[in-house]
Write a protein that binds this DNA or RNA. Sequence first.
DNA 1: GCCGTTTTCGGCCCGACTGTTTTCAGTCG
Length: 606
Amino acid sequence: MKLTAVPPREALLGAPTPTAERSQAISNDEIAAVFDDIADLLEIDDANPFRIRAYRVAARTVRALTVELAPLIARGEPLPKLPGIGVDLAGKISEIATTGNCALRQRLRSTLPPGLVELLSIAGLGPKRIKHLYHDLGIATAQQLCEAAQQGHIRHVPGFGERLEARLLSAAQKGLGKDRRLPLAVVEPVALRLIEYLRQLPGVEDAQLAGSLRRMRDTVGDIDILVTAAPSVGVTAHLVKHPEVSTVLVKGRTRASVVLDSGLQVDVRVVKPADLGAALVYFTGSKAHNIAIRKQARDLGLKLNEYGVFKGQERLAGATEVSVYQALGLRWITPELREDRGEVAAALSGRLPRLVEVSDLKGDLHVHSLDSDGGNSLEQMALAAQQAGLEYLAITDHSRALAVAHGLAGERLLKQIDQIDALNARLQGITVLKGVEVEILEDGSLDLPDTILGRLDLVVGAVHSHFGLTLRQQTQRLLRAMDHRYFTILAHPLCRLINERAPLNMDLSAIIRAAAARGCCLELNAQPQRMDLFDLQCQYAKDQGVLISINSDAHRATDFSYLRYGVAQARRAWLGKDDVLNTRSLRALKSLLAKARGGRADAARD
DNA sequence: GCCGTTTTCGGCCCGACTGTTTTCAGTCG
């Protein structure tokens, strides 16, 4: 579990806006970034740790909001009362929203060299050591740190020594990034292999996943594994002997951290079986959730740590997660919800939602075949969908403008429609719907004429080009596309690719509100590199009454397994079965699609 | 900097590991 309080900088409801083309107010994400920056600066300034935490908490709170604050402020409306944000921070939010900056940040920046904040990202360097290095040796950048270490100066600073000097040099040179995050689906198999390896050691009772991997976050920064065994079993010694381990960061009897050849960090903890429940809660996190339930413990006069729930010296619970939550007066909270976004209050009052499950999915509405850039035939995809437990799938090959994917022009699509009719006549227990993933062109028009689109069961629209439009242009483009009478689902709305392409520069909250008004659905694309939309955005869509379609975007018969990741993301968004379009039976789906189309046609006539 | 049927001041989550120290500070999760 990664517990550094540096949240992802991705844009949520509104991508970061280039200053040259700021046609919209400052986003919540940008306000949060200012607070995080202030917290970094305060750390180096050796400020009160609780003041620093207040800024970190405020950043997280603002980032998690589904309502944009700047427009509210611009309209002169009062800020809603937010937990952890008092008079001072509310004032700073207004200041940032109005001016784009904050006097406190400017003052701190003017007194500290800009490179110092960077140094915080070097493993083993915290604010105290940075301060010492700056005062004694004038070190203000990673480069200067390396030079001083190579010349042997650092070992002479009080509190430092030769070993620490070597460690810092190594960390600075390797740039052992604390911020590197990989897609869940990439990390999961690595973690499962390690778990198998640890289980093979005699004396190990069990090994389990914890951390953000267990919470099924879309990206994972490191692998957390909990092993139940006696400390004498030598679990950490076994771990460091694993052939994929390249660097040992720390190794004690009950805890070890290593880096794999792939650059992934692995943290392993060894606990006694009797402590497993409390340890699982603790190491699953998130940090914010842990703080929230510890506060709940304190409110009850109890103490919670990784060994159990305690009343004075007496241990009340700890063997199972259920017992830990129960001792705190809470229902068990599924790991996907453990982000301190209201789940503790819901568990306290018995109002935890019943979340969507993989088995609730009846179909997949975004699937490709050999006709465009898929790897399998229509029939193979249909049979694979059936094998995956689905009752229907929509074939949605690319349209003509996406030539690189052999997109279909009208005639080829009409031919595919006939083939699907023939296939449906042959197949039993699975129904193939006729669809298309139609290109949304630069001006927001669709790539195929109504005469073709009108023949389909559904139209999935997507952007694959012109990612660099301005916020206003991109938003207008998508709104115009969704306005089309046959438009059904907006596929991968952000068009982000994890670690490769940033989300589109657009006003997503406007898109979501428009989808609600027009009866369109939004996709939660479950391709591991996409995972598009984010959880909070799905939650906002749900709040606005927009149905989410969890689709695999399968290009091969094996890709239906991705649906699992989409469902996990939906669960993190508090979505229930009814919030998801493709949990509907085929009959209910068809009636819903017909109604949406009819409603849109009526609206067009008005 | 926030917060309050203990409190408007004095708390604020808790423990393991490392390295530099002779009992603990700093970092990390």
